[in-house]
Structure formats: structure tokens, C-alpha cells
């Protein structure tokens, strides 16, 4: 039972990732898709940081009186990934705004419909 319960952090990451995946597939709204994508991203961050955690350890800042530190490597990777994720999110939102200007909509169905049926007809 203890062995079974030792993975709940991973499961939470998986649940969050699947909520994000569901939003990306099921929702037609482009902004909603981006929200789903950022949920998926944070789920991956959670997975990495969970792997780096050691029970009873402290934050990886070397100081007197501490010997056990959590793994700093995932922290480095995720720290940069968070700032990159907001930059890429900004690019996605900018594309959405540009699409809205060109098509007058942010719904996937309507955009595809407009692509199939040219406006001149």
C-alpha cells in the first residue's frame, strides 16, 4: 500500500497533463487551446520537480549545518522553461490575435469553414 501510494505526485502531474490534452483536442477556441497547452506544460514541470525532490532535504543553496539537498538540475531546467513557456505563449496569443484580424473569429470550425468556402462566392 505504501509502495502504491508513493507515486501520487506523478499521478497529479498526469491528471493535469490529461486535462490540458483534453482541452487542446476537444475545444475549438484557440485561446482555450492555449490554456490547455499551458496546463500541459506546467504538468511536465511538476513531473520534473517531483523527480528532483528528496524527502527530508532542503533547497539547493549550500550553507553550514545542511548536508542533504534536493536535486538542483531539474530546478535549472524548469526555471528556464517557465520563462520560455511564457514567451511561446505570447507568440501563440499574438498569432491568435492576427488570426482573429484575418478571419474575424477565434473558433477553429469557423476558420476552417472560411478557408474552404472563399468569401467571393
Amino acid at each position: 500500500m505504501a509502495e502504491f501510494l508513493a507515486h501520487y505526485n506523478y499521478w497529479a502531474a498526469i491528471v493535469l497533463a490529461m486535462i490540458g490534452l483534453f482541452a487542446v483536442i476537444a475545444r475549438g477556441n484557440l485561446i482555450k487551446k492555449l490554456i490547455g497547452l499551458s496546463l500541459f506544460q506546467t504538468a511536465v514541470f511538476l513531473l520534473f520537480i517531483t523527480i528532483g525532490k528528496i524527502t527530508g532535504a532542503t533547497a539547493p543553496i549550500v550553507g553550514a549545518g545542511f548536508t542533504l539537498y534536493s536535486n538542483p538540475l531539474p530546478h535549472v531546467l524548469i526555471l528556464t522553461a517557465i520563462v520560455v513557456s511564457v514567451s511561446t505563449l505570447a507568440v501563440g496569443l499574438a498569432l491568435t490575435v492576427a488570426i482573429r484580424r484575418a478571419y474575424g473569429s477565434t473558433e477553429e470550425d469557423e476558420i476552417q469553414h472560411k478557408d474552404r468556402v472563399p468569401e467571393r462566392e
Partner: peptide, 16 residues
């Protein structure tokens, strides 16, 4: 770079 890019992104969105 991070500070400048964040401000550029904000200006771009808010300037429309």
C-alpha cells in the same frame, strides 16, 4: 533580455 522581451510583448499587445 528577459525584461526587454516581456516589455516588448506587453507593448505589442496593449498598443493595438
Amino acid at each position: 533580455t528577459v525584461a526587454a522581451v516581456m516589455m516588448i510583448v506587453y507593448y505589442s499587445f496593449a498598443g493595438r
